[in-house]
Design a protein around this nucleic acid. Structure first.
Lengths: 189, 189
DNA sequence: GCCGAGCTTGAACATATGTTCAAGACTTCG
DNA sequence: CGAAGTCTTGAACATATGTTCAAGCTCGGC
């Protein structure tokens, strides 16, 4: 059990999938290309991941986890600041890169094309929606859970639009205005 | 020049691509599957479309044309009705089907993965944005062209979000609220 | 009826891709 | 060191896929 290097290689394989998926879409993700990008032999990919669907599922799960971090509150901050922070984070520089957005897009497409992937994706989406509704509830204690969920739904529409439209190369000012719009929705009286 | 049947076959091949792309994504689009779905022989696909990229480009162009129809004004109606109609059309029953949305998603993913496809797609997007800005200008003559473009940008963010989020299975009421939001943006004073 | 041009077919070829596996390298522990 | 277990490699196999092509079909015009 060579803990360091093992995790390293296994993780590098996932990194390679993310890189290839982001740059060339699912057509660019084949076992040989993954192995090359990760700098390992072909056989090793199948050693850690029984087959291609398993490999893709592992990638989906990894992305789902990083999405949850977006709505994980910073315990230091006040509730309203937590919410504002979360709303700005989705348009932050780490997220609004072509690489990340392109990856998201390909993952959505993947989920749309395959029942199994769709389940993993839908669950992550529901958790994100739930996390966002909770943040809203904390920041605006007067709202019912239903109202919070409604606002979370509305916000996610705009957020997804921001992500998608960023990829199509819209003016960045439109993104800033859209962030403001999500804050209006969240904090409206 | 057997006009009727020829156009029919050639068009059926494009239909087949759309169907396969929508259901299984780009991985499901291969020459054999296209031929089978269209009910023609394998060779005929390569007869009409020199190679696979040409086939995909033909599909992208076809979708681009149908997008333009969304912002093509009905000359009978008043300018503000034209705009309102256009804004409601994008969430109409013909558009908001899983098949169509799934197709859009896969086309975006495709454009993201391939430089050549990206160009076709970006041009269609710009034309759509332009058409929308024109509709806004007609409905609100007081606005400058710049202000119209700004509003069109903002609306498209929400519209893209509606499309994408519909696929992820959000509550339909959120879509209705988002349409209202696009109208607010368009008609704001 | 027959010719010619365009349309249609499916076999054939070259290449790409997922998966398996026997063999070797490396690590850990006695 | 040496054995046992784990990790790593690349060749090999079966299948899938894009493309080509020679042959057949269809149909309008002579």
């Amino acid at each position: 059990m060579n803990s360091g290097a093992q995790v390293d290689r296994q993780s590098r394989i996932l990194d390679a999938v993310l890189e290839l998926l982001s740059r060339h879409g699912i057509s660019g993700v084949n076992m040989r290309a993954v192995a090359r990008e990760a700098g390992v032999a072909l056989g090793l990919v199948n050693y850690y991941y029984a087959d291609k669907p398993s490999l893709i599922r592992a990638v989906l799960n990894r992305i789902g986890e990083s999405d949850m971090r977006l709505v994980t509150p910073d315990p230091e901050a006040r509730p309203d600041e937590q919410l504002r922070e979360a709303l700005r984070r989705v348009a932050g520089p780490e997220i609004l890169t072509t690489e990340y957005l392109s990856l998201r897009l390909h993952l959505w497409a993947l989920a749309q094309a395959d029942e199994g992937f769709a389940l993993v994706n839908a669950e992550a989406f529901d958790q994100y929606l739930d996390g966002l509704a909770t943040l809203i509830g904390n920041a605006k204690p007067g709202l019912s859970r239903e109202e919070c969920k409604e606002r979370a739904d509305d916000i996610v529409v705009v957020q997804n639009g921001m992500w998608l439209t960023s990829l199509l190369g819209i003016d960045k000012a439109a993104i800033q205005r859209s962030i403001a719009r999500t804050e209006q929705i969240a904090f409206a009286d």
